[in-house]
């Protein structure tokens, strides 16, 4: 009988604790901004109308063999349409390769992309559905490259699932799931979790799972500091958990103030090079 009372008390206390925890979590979750609200805060952040910058890409395989590419990149907004271009400067085997993207705000419109291949001396049209393919040997997909510090509102549904800390900065953890199976296949991602710094509304860590639900890769944004009043990531570290391959992007000579010529965002410009 005494054992029965004790069991009853423990059960009641346990139930109370669980109920309290559930209520607390619900209350807490209620305080979190929604996933969509966070995404909108991220995309509302000032990126500057135009930017020019140098980018060093280090690609490191599982045996620590390093390949390095030196590039120069430009990006400019035309209203909500974003145009970006990357010119490869070094090494010799990829020198003069260039990649141009027109990113349209209309969800019904595919992006337009072109790649200049110096060995062919031709500008080649690239299918926008290649966006889940990895960009020229890196661990970033074409979509990752295109989005930069923004997130896609049209491709994912989001919810905030917790809080965390990255490099000492508080962040909300937002789970993003592609809106449908086809989009998931195109992106190459089944799910991702992004840790968003709520002080500056930048993603500090992104964890990706493949379409089968297996861990795929993690990207860290580091060395985030202001340039001409705009929060700017200066280092991106990506690690592919399947292949052990890593990519480090280091940005330098970032300039938002000088302006960027419209003529750079043309097929003629990527054919001529810098």
């Amino acid at each position: 009988m005494k054992n029965d009372d004790t069991y009853l008390r423990i059960s009641l206390i346990g139930a109370l604790v669980l109920a309290l925890a559930a209520v607390t979590t619900e209350l807490r979750a209620g305080e979190w901004p929604t996933g969509d609200a966070i995404a909108q805060r991220i995309n509302a952040r000032d990126e500057g109308e135009a930017v020019s910058r140098s980018l060093t890409m280090e690609m490191i395989d599982r045996r620590d063999k390093v390949r390095v590419r030196e590039t120069r990149g430009f990006r400019k907004y035309y209203g909500e349409e974003k145009r970006s271009v990357i010119f490869y400067l070094q090494p010799q085997n990829v020198k003069d390769t260039a990649f141009l993207t027109y990113d349209y705000p209309d969800a019904a419109l595919d992006d337009d992309q072109w790649l200049y291949l110096p060995a062919m001396r031709k500008v080649r049209r690239i299918s926008a559905s290649d966006r889940g393919d990895y960009f020229l040997g890196t661990d970033f997909t074409y979509e990752d490259i295109k989005l930069e510090t923004k997130v896609s509102l049209k491709n994912y549904s989001r919810k905030t699932i917790g809080e965390d800390e990255v490099d000492g900065h508080h962040c909300y953890v937002v789970e993003a799931v592609p809106i449908d199976e086809n989009t998931a296949k195109e992106l190459g991602y089944g799910r991702l979790e992004q840790c968003v710094d709520d002080a500056i509304w930048m993603v500090r860590r992104s964890k990706f799972w493949d379409i089968r639900g297996k861990p795929l890769k993690t990207i860290y944004s580091k060395d985030i500091r202001q340039v001409q009043g705009i929060w700017t990531q200066h280092r991106l570290e990506a690690e592919n958990h399947k292949t052990g391959h890593r990519t480090i992007f280091s940005f330098s000579e970032v300039d938002y103030a000088q302006g960027v010529s419209d003529n750079l965002f043309t097929q003629n410009a990527i054919r001529r090079g810098l």
């Binding site: 595919d110 337009d112 992309q113 049209r125 690239i126 299918s127 926008a128 559905s129 290649d130």
Partner: peptide
């Protein structure tokens, strides 16, 4: 001419 349609590029 050239254009992209989904996974396809026609030229």
């Amino acid at each position: 001419f050239s254009n992209a349609f989904g996974d396809w590029v026609v030229r």
